[in-house]
Simulated scan of single mutants.
Amino acid sequence: MSSKQNLFTIQFWGVRGSIASPGPETVRYGGNTPCVEMRVGGERLIFDGGTGLRVLGQSLLSQMPVEAYMFFTHSHWDHIQGFPFFVPAFIKGNRFHIHGAPAPNGATIKQRLNDQMLHPNFPVPLQIMGADLQFYDIEMRGKIQIGDVTIENAPLNHPGDATGYRISWNGYAAAYITDTEHFPDRLDENVLELAHNADVLIYDATYTEEEYSSPASSKVGWGHSTWVEGVKVARAANVKKLVIFHHDPLHNDDFLDRLGEEAVQEFPDTLMAREGLSIQLVPPTVTNSVLAEETSVSV
């Protein structure tokens, strides 16, 4: 087995929620919306197609031809707006397997990606893309097998629905759980199931507890969670490392620094997601521990 086939690496290309927020106050954590790449057992998996997908696409131009498996949590704009700017999808010879659960109105992921590229929203249609695009409607609570990699899913608590994913390979697991709102009186069983004994939990912590429950500007019902709830899930699910994700566009770098310090006090193995963060799960043939390191990459 080659070294690339014997790795489980998670790369963050977009970590911001709701709307892209570039500027001098978001330089360190980044302003692009959700896109997470995983290289698992020799396969390339891409989760969500926010504006971070454009940056990932630029990095892939030196690696073509490219084949990847894309998984969308849902089709709110911050999770799909990078797709029309994903250059590898326009290049013949590349292949992308695109997965998503049907929307409550029955619209498939293909229909929704297609619709955002229709006039007057975008100058060229999806059909202009030259890559081989294959679309799949995923079955909720089903399993998808890609080589030795298993992808499971479960529904999340979000307006218009959303899907959480668990990626398993060679005894390791990562959970991608974003755009979900916690319940006031209990932990979400679907979230716990996806996160159970995971090496890494990527969790939607858009708000602080104060922002979420503020009488003046309550975010209850908006479909997002807090880092405190993320800690509760990490503890209950026996997670090794918690990654705070889907940062609010109003949270600048200094704010996120302070938030991260608070989270680490409650759950020491916590990381704040930022563009360029790479987490590597090292196979047991190399070490019996899970290593996580921050690295600088060209984005």
Rank of each mutant, 00 (worst) to 15 (best):
E211D: 11
V191L: 06
G164L: 08
V264C: 04
E181F: 02
G221E: 04
E209N: 15
P159I: 04
M129C: 05
V233E: 09
R39V: 13
F8P: 02
N288V: 07
V15Q: 06
W222S: 13
D137F: 02
T287Y: 11
P249F: 08
E43A: 13
D115I: 07
G82Y: 12
Y203G: 01
E293R: 09
L126E: 03
L281M: 04
G171E: 08
A263G: 05
S21T: 10
Y165T: 13
T178C: 11
E181N: 01
A175D: 03
Q127T: 15
H119P: 02
A68T: 10
W227R: 04
Q111K: 08
L271H: 07
H119F: 15
V286Y: 14
F83G: 00
D185N: 08
P159H: 11
S225F: 00
N32K: 14
T270D: 01
F85N: 03
V233N: 08
F47K: 00
Y172M: 15
G100R: 04
Y29Q: 14
R54W: 04
P65G: 05
V149T: 02
S18C: 10
G164S: 03
I144K: 03
N6P: 01
L126N: 01
S62I: 08
Y69F: 12
Q127S: 10
R95Q: 11
T73D: 10
V231R: 11
L277I: 06
H247N: 07
L256R: 06
R39G: 06
L61M: 12
E293S: 06
E25S: 14
L45E: 04
S218N: 12
L56T: 11
D115Y: 15
E210I: 04
Y203T: 01
A292P: 02
A154D: 11
G130S: 12
C35N: 02
A198H: 12
L192Q: 10
E275P: 02
G147I: 04
P88K: 06
G171Y: 02
G223E: 03
L194C: 08
A174W: 00
L250K: 12
Q134E: 09
T206M: 02
L45Y: 01
Q5I: 00
A216K: 11
H251K: 07
S213I: 09
S2E: 08
T178H: 14
P120G: 05
I138T: 08
I91W: 10
H246S: 03
E43Q: 14
H246D: 00
I91T: 15
N157T: 02
L187R: 12
S218V: 04
R166M: 06
D199I: 02
F71H: 08
A103I: 09
L277V: 09
E189P: 00
D248A: 12
F245I: 09
E139N: 09
D253K: 06
D248R: 12
F255G: 14
H251F: 11
S225N: 03
L61C: 07
H251Q: 11
G14R: 01
V200F: 06
A195I: 02
A162T: 12
F86Y: 01
H76A: 14
P24K: 15
K143E: 15
L118G: 10
D248E: 13
G14W: 09
A103C: 09
A154W: 13
G30L: 08
V233T: 13
A273Q: 05
P284E: 15
L53E: 01
F8E: 07
D161N: 10
Y165D: 07
D148Q: 14
E25N: 08
